[in-house]
Amino acid sequence: MRAWLQFLIFHRRELLQLLLEHIGLVAASTLIAAAIALPLGIWATRSRAARRWGIGTANIVQTIPSLAMFGFLLPLPLLGGVGASSAIVALVLYSLLPIMRGVYSGIAQVDPAVKEAAVALGLTARQRLWQVELPLALPSIFGGLRVAAVIAVGTATIGAAIGAGGLGEFIFRGLATADNNLILAGAVPAALLALAVDGLLGGLESMLARRYRPAAPPPALAETASGA
């Protein structure tokens, strides 16, 4: 333990740089994934076909092993290649499902009476979305973002396999040289980062939930997550 801490202190600059790279990978991919998954999730609440195809595709993407995914991405122009871009694309693809689910189930679970009232009051579809459905779905959307970001912190370590840097670099180097200090220097900060991200977004989520407190006891979020 002590030797390991000394090792960390000795490598603190490198550690800091890899940590920042790691945060960059997670932040970039989660933001891009949110920008894609938000409209997809909304669309899924409007169309049965979008729901089946969108969530189905995201589900399949989720099961592709990351090395295989990098193999597909390598030859792609613009998106792929060696380095951060392929890693970010892969992370974005992995993050789509949890975010889409959060958006979809958040909107699907808005009290039908509230939705009916919004129609009956004469709100346009856009006003219903922005003033009623999205604000009420916000805690669930944040829940999805939180899951996506925490998964991304873990998955981003594999980015080192395609030259994207991040804490995975310590892990890969440690594995290549059977150096436990190096492996732990990557794995432990990654785990701590996951906890930090989870705590941060969790705090934000409960803040939002307090602000937009539902009238009834909070609906169970997971139930209709992949509902028909």
Binding site: D111, A113, A117, A118, L121, G122, R211
Partner: peptide, 21 residues
């Protein structure tokens, strides 16, 4: 226009349907 029509008619439902936020 359905939006104009609805805005010109008041509507009350059973559970109120108040916007909780």
């Amino acid at each position: 226009d359905p939006i104009q029509l609805r805005r010109s008619l008041g509507y009350v439902i059973q559970e109120g349907g108040l916007f909780p936020h």
